[in-house]
């Protein structure tokens, strides 16, 4: 397949573009999706290319999302975009209580082929009401498939798979990753919605993460002492969680660390650790999870510097779990506060 280096946002746009071209039932709705650089660039140019199928909306998330659910029930394939997870919460009823329940409560045969692309807003200065990492909340709702793309390549493949699926699929997209670049196949492809990825094989410890937590782990790997062998798993799916893949790895390494950017209560890592315990996987030491503290994300950089787990925190935790000395490293302002623009 021909590849070229594109950004996370461009990969999402390309998936939508290719699916709009092949699926006449698909349409896109959301605030600003028809702009020149719509939805952070993820819908750029699509309104011009597909007239009448990429619709800007009034500021009415509940009605817009509900309308999309109704259209999906009747066979259309809506892609709904919400620019922050908090805006999507105004549509909690059509997402959680209508779309997620419809097929089940009517005894099957009533699929809701809707895709919700929801932006999780970690970014400089966005503060308590624009940055909530409610990953676990979506994962806890039966009837939704929930995925988190961690790289541009995954973003494209997951969005294509979501748009082909018959059921409600939620893509929780960490804004923090929007500038990441990667070699992404030009052709349309999809990746499974329910499978974790072993991104790197190793023997000392299994690190399980997703989204911006996953990218922090990638950064941490570059700082780790060379004699530490990490097996890195990208969860990809939060509903369902691919517990088999995780248990297989932990059975091999005997150590488990989970890393994410949610609060530590009712958290994704806790869910992973609980299932490893239920399966009685034999461990060489207590499993650990690294997340944010149980407070809202503040706005001041003096405080956000302390809020998110960094690559240094991750290295420190891994070293501690392996009984090795921690490394000393001061992070620059850019490393702490500006999203990564690296090429993977």
């Amino acid at each position: 397949m021909s590849e070229r280096i594109i950004k996370y946002t461009e990969a999402l746009k390309e998936a939508a573009d290719q699916m709009l071209a092949q699926d006449p039932k698909m349409f896109i709705v959301g605030l600003g999706v028809s702009y020149k650089n719509g939805a952070d660039g993820t819908t750029a140019g699509l309104a011009q290319k597909y007239p009448g199928r990429v619709l800007d909306t009034p500021v009415s998330e509940n009605a817009v999302t509900g309308m999309a659910v109704g259209a999906a029930i009747n066979g259309l394939h809506p892609l709904v975009h919400h620019g922050r997870i908090e805006f999507a919460l105004l549509a909690a009823d059509p997402m959680f209580t209508q779309a997620a329940k419809w097929n089940y409560m009517f005894g099957g045969g009533n699929p809701v082929p809707i895709v919700l692309r929801i932006n999780v807003g970690r970014q400089w200065g966005n503060g308590p009401q624009h940055t909530q990492s409610l990953y676990a909340m979506f994962g806890s709702v039966a009837g939704l498939k929930v995925v988190v793309p961690s790289t541009p390549k995954m973003a494209k493949g997951l969005l294509v798979a979501a748009l082909k699926d018959k059921n409600p699929v939620v893509l929780l997209e960490p804004r923090w990753l929007f500038q990441l670049k990667e070699n992404v196949p030009e052709e349309m492809y999809d990746v499974p919605l329910d499978k974790a990825r072993v991104v790197k094989e190793g023997s000392d410890i299994t690190v399980v993460s997703y989204g911006d937590g996953f990218v922090a782990v990638l950064e941490a790997l570059e700082l780790l002492p060379k004699d530490v062998s990490v097996e890195l798993i990208d969860m990809v799916s939060l509903s369902p969680i691919d517990h088999d893949a995780i248990a297989r790895s932990v059975a091999k390494t005997g150590r488990l660390l989970t890393v994410d950017t949610t609060t530590p209560a009712f958290n994704v890592g806790s869910e992973v650790i609980a299932e490893v315990a239920r399966r009685a996987v034999v461990l060489k030491g207590a499993p650990q999870s690294l997340s944010c503290p149980l407070v809202p994300c503040p706005t001041s950089t003096a405080l956000t510097a302390e809020y998110y787990p960094t690559k240094v925190d991750i290295v420190g935790t891994i070293c501690k779990m392996l009984g090795k000395p921690a490394i000393e490293r001061e992070l620059s302002f850019e490393e702490l506060h500006l999203p990564p623009g690296r090429t993977l």
């Binding site: 503060g127 308590p128 503040p298 706005t299």
Partner: peptide, 10 residues
């Protein structure tokens, strides 16, 4: 006014 926790929108 919000001790740095809120920012411009609060």
């Amino acid at each position: 006014s919000s001790k740095g926790k809120g920012g411009s929108m609060h």
